[in-house]
Amino acid sequence: MNRQLQVHGALFLVALIYGANYSIAKEIMPRYILPFGLIVIRVVSAVLVFGSLSLFVVKEKVQSKKDWLRLILCGLFGITINQLSFFSGLNLTSPINASLIQTVSPVVVVLLSAFLLKERIQVFRMVGILLAGLGALLLISGKAGNAQGHLLGDLLILVNAASFGAFLVLVKPLMQRYNPITVVSRIFLVGSVGVIPFGLGQVIQPAYGSFPAAIWGAIAFVVIGMTIVAYLLNVWAMKYASPALVGVYIYLQPAFAILIAVGLGKDVFTFQKALYASMIFGGVYLVSKPKKVAV
């Protein structure tokens, strides 16, 4: 098969997995497993899988204390804060609200890059930041006319988007120096230290023997599909795909989330949500637009 077709197929599947996760995870929470318990199951599973790959396949060591410090920060923002805010937020808000608010991560990346790396923010990017921020604010404050959208849940998803944006800025130098499996195995290990104290009580509480097969399937999807398969596909595809192509498929995630949530009857897509979504997407597009190179 042509390499470009493989890349498109991998990115398409990743977008579909993430889009489906918003509705599938809500089947599990909170009736069967509370949010923090589900996080522990996911993160511990990732530690075992990626840790085994790092130990027996990649066999690469972290070279300096400075890199370990950065890994700890990545584990804090990329796993601990990211996962705790995402699953607790998704438990409270609707799948569509969550998927739309989470797309503001590129805005956070630009703001943090300007602050940490002293990169100048161009005018069109500033307009994009304001537009995306206003769209997210309207979606959160008004809940887009949908009673299912919970203010606290929306705010937690916004925290999730901000922490993931911080993670992307922090992890970039590590990805340039180490194998991705080396980085992600350490990040999940550090992150597990942060989430286990919050979720240990919730993970031992459920009566797992009473779970129907459909719920076990949903748990398997979150652990295997979203955590392991999606990450490995994403890492592989990003070796060959341009940032612009990856960005296009990121925008597909809320589209899949909307189609799946509406198809399963888990949420409704109103005109107001469409308007706020167009503001967020438009703002993110302006923020992600490449800088013009002087000739």
Rank of each mutant, 00 (worst) to 15 (best):
43 V>I: 11
241 A>L: 07
207 A>G: 00
5 L>H: 14
64 S>C: 06
31 R>T: 15
75 G>S: 09
240 Y>N: 11
145 G>D: 10
237 A>P: 08
116 L>G: 03
119 E>Y: 01
41 I>D: 00
122 Q>T: 10
29 M>R: 02
249 Y>N: 06
106 P>K: 07
36 F>G: 11
238 M>N: 10
286 L>D: 08
247 G>C: 05
45 S>I: 00
232 L>Y: 11
27 E>R: 07
40 V>K: 02
38 L>Q: 13
192 S>E: 01
98 A>I: 02
153 G>C: 09
283 G>M: 07
185 S>M: 02
112 L>T: 03
48 L>T: 05
39 I>Q: 00
251 Y>I: 07
268 V>Q: 13
199 G>P: 05
19 G>F: 08
68 W>L: 12
81 I>P: 00
118 K>N: 13
42 R>Y: 00
125 R>D: 09
20 A>C: 14
35 P>T: 08
168 L>V: 12
158 L>S: 12
82 N>W: 05
249 Y>R: 05
267 D>A: 09
278 S>N: 03
43 V>N: 00
243 P>G: 12
252 L>S: 06
49 V>W: 01
13 L>A: 15
57 V>N: 01
267 D>V: 06
212 P>F: 10
129 I>V: 15
166 A>T: 11
200 L>G: 03
167 F>R: 01
153 G>A: 10
238 M>W: 04
44 V>S: 01
19 G>K: 06
169 V>M: 09
170 L>K: 02
61 K>Y: 08
238 M>F: 01
121 I>K: 02
69 L>I: 10
173 P>K: 12
166 A>N: 03
70 R>V: 12
65 K>I: 07
274 A>D: 06
165 G>Q: 04
103 T>R: 15
286 L>P: 01
237 A>C: 00
9 G>K: 07
291 K>D: 14
186 R>G: 08
85 S>V: 04
61 K>R: 13
225 G>S: 14
224 I>W: 05
100 L>K: 06
250 I>M: 15
201 G>R: 14
215 I>H: 01
84 L>P: 01
76 L>G: 07
148 Q>P: 00
170 L>F: 09
76 L>K: 02
110 V>L: 09
290 P>W: 14
13 L>G: 12
235 V>D: 07
77 F>C: 10
258 I>V: 15
16 L>E: 05
180 P>C: 14
183 V>I: 14
163 S>Y: 10
207 A>S: 14
154 D>E: 02
66 K>C: 03
242 S>M: 09
167 F>A: 02
164 F>G: 12
6 Q>L: 13
248 V>R: 14
189 L>N: 07
134 L>V: 13
180 P>M: 13
279 M>P: 01
254 P>M: 13
37 G>C: 08
259 L>T: 12
182 T>F: 03
118 K>L: 07
70 R>S: 15
68 W>D: 05
52 S>K: 01
14 V>Q: 07
177 R>C: 03
28 I>T: 15
113 S>Y: 02
262 V>K: 02
23 S>R: 03
65 K>Q: 10
155 L>D: 08
137 L>E: 08
186 R>Y: 11
256 F>Y: 11
146 N>H: 05
